[in-house]
Design a protein around this nucleic acid. Structure first.
Length: 280
DNA sequence: ACCCAGGAAATTC
DNA sequence: GAATTTCATGGG
């Protein structure tokens, strides 16, 4: 998608936006740092910058960002270079229920989050619920992240967390996940686990690289690869996806959804979560 | 009191 | 090896 942006009183404005719904994308359990405001906009932080985003028709507004920020951070973060309409069209041919799921929330996009943040937030996600995950992530940033504004904190980097011990994370109330977070930070900080290389090496190797970390299994590795490394062939299977596959796609698995399996996964995950009656 | 939550490690069979 | 239990915490 070719986009131009210009400066307005509501920050940067980008026109001709398609296949993008803020609630569907920012409140669907892939990122845990966005909160909806009373006016329908979303406030959040990524790459150390706090912004407020809103959509009016085909126009995307990003407040508190300039043109350089848009080009350097937000164009990629919102994955505006990928044609989701075309992908939706293609994967809808695979299975009629997948077509239904894609049609249900056509504005979902896969964010390109910071790798270390994706790793940590999905470590926190295990055996947990989205509301509490958000609280723990918020406390992690408030306690150990760099302050970037009035009450706003960046996600802490691996070096900072690597200097801590599990008990130092007690204020998070993350329980048994504390030692997993410290182990992840120390292995990333030391270079034993290379998050950048996970963007390019073959999928199984990338997954193995992440699974060196204590507390990272297949599902957390897949989520990290999908949301932090934009490996959109990843197909994380959590409790919702397990139910969905058994009930809605019997005798199928992630491989049947092809190179865009991760995008299919998000459509199915969201569709299932919004329709719990499917699984009663 | 009990069960579950975008799981994984530790233990047991 | 496969199946079960445990791990903290909070909400329903």
């Amino acid at each position: 998608m070719y986009v131009r942006c210009e400066t307005t009183d509501k920050g940067i404005m980008v026109d001709e936006i398609r296949d993008f719904d803020l609630a569907q994308t920012l409140d669907c359990g892939q990122s845990f740092r966005w909160t909806e405001q009373a006016d329908g906009s979303f406030k959040g932080i990524a790459f150390g910058q706090c912004v407020k985003v809103s959509i009016d028709g085909t126009r995307l507004y990003i407040d508190n960002a300039d043109k350089a920020d848009f080009e350097n951070i937000w164009y990629d973060y919102f994955d505006l270079g990928l044609d989701y309409g075309k992908i939706r069209e293609n994967i809808s041919k695979i299975h009629p229920v997948l077509a239904d799921a894609a049609k249900y929330a056509p504005g979902i996009r896969i964010l390109r989050q910071e790798p270390f943040e994706a790793l940590c937030t999905f470590i926190i996600s295990q055996n947990n619920n989205i509301k509490r995950i958000k609280g723990i992530v918020q406390r992690l940033c408030e306690n150990f992240g760099e302050q970037i504004g009035d009450g706003e904190f960046a996600f802490p980097d691996a070096d900072r967390l690597a200097a801590l011990a599990p008990d130092d994370l007690a204020p998070l109330r993350a329980g048994f996940r504390n030692r997993y977070l410290i182990d992840a930070a120390q292995r990333v900080s030391s270079g034993e686990v290379d998050l950048e290389i996970c963007k390019t090496i073959d999928y199984d190797s990338a997954r193995s690289e992440l699974m060196k970390i204590v507390g990272v299994g297949q599902k957390v590795a897949d989520c990290t690869l999908l949301f932090g490394m934009h490996r959109i062939e990843a197909f994380p299977v959590d409790v919702w996806m397990k139910r969905a596959m058994e009930k809605l796609f019997p005798n199928m698995n992630g491989n049947d959804f092809g190179e865009y399996a991760g995008i299919a996964q998000q459509y199915i995950f969201h569709y299932s979560r919004m329709h719990p009656e499917f699984f009663e």
